[in-house]
């Protein structure tokens, strides 16, 4: 196991823990961008270069910006005075610790995991493109349809309501 992988893993874990422990939402979004960058660095070290750069483009470039815009649009950029945790947070912490213990135990004690490291596979963008256009063409088309539907749905949901056609009968 290379030292670079250990360092990026530690940075990713610390950033992920920071996301969920800070009070200010803008700081949380920035720590989330660091987490996604760390995950992209892990992908690059696992010789999945295309996925690593796609992660940076999609998550750090698009989703982080989208989340920052949503934070500013809902005016929740300031730190709240009240508690940031829900009423039943103790049970949530206990369940997540249990989940991590179970997963970690399974990973460390499983006999079926391959032991020896294999040689790095040859994945070029050409290979990925040929697979996308050949074997995986139907899922690709369906994902295009899903993205179009999600985009139209998001625009309709976030559209400003017309006060005259307000179905609750109130003038806003």
């Amino acid at each position: 196991m290379s030292p670079a992988l250990i360092i990026t893993a530690i940075v990713t874990i610390l950033a992920a823990a920071t996301v969920m422990s800070l009070r200010n939402l803008v700081h949380c979004a920035l720590a989330m961008a660091i987490t996604f960058s760390g995950i992209a660095a892990i992908y690059l070290q696992l010789s999945a270069e295309f996925v690593g750069f796609a992660e940076i483009l999609v998550y750090v470039g698009a989703i982080a910006i989208l989340i920052v815009f949503a934070i500013l649009l809902t005016r929740s950029g300031e730190s709240p005075e009240k508690s940031v945790l829900t009423s039943g947070w103790g049970a949530g912490i206990v369940v997540s610790v249990l989940v991590f213990t179970a997963l970690g135990w399974a990973v460390l004690n499983s006999a079926g995991l391959p032991k020896a490291a294999t040689a790095a596979p040859e994945t070029t963008v050409k290979n990925i493109g040929e697979a996308l256009m050949g074997k995986f063409i139907l899922p690709l088309e369906i994902v295009g349809l899903v993205l179009t539907a999600a985009m139209i749905g998001a625009v309709i949901i976030a559209l400003k309501e017309d006060p005259k056609t307000d179905n609750s009968g109130r003038k806003s």
Partner: peptide, 19 residues
């Protein structure tokens, strides 16, 4: 596994919808 556990903890314990 750690990322999953921390994401789960955040999703069930934090009060803000964006988090």
């Amino acid at each position: 596994a750690f990322l999953f556990a921390i994401g789960f903890a955040g999703a069930v314990t934090r009060r803000h919808a964006i988090l």
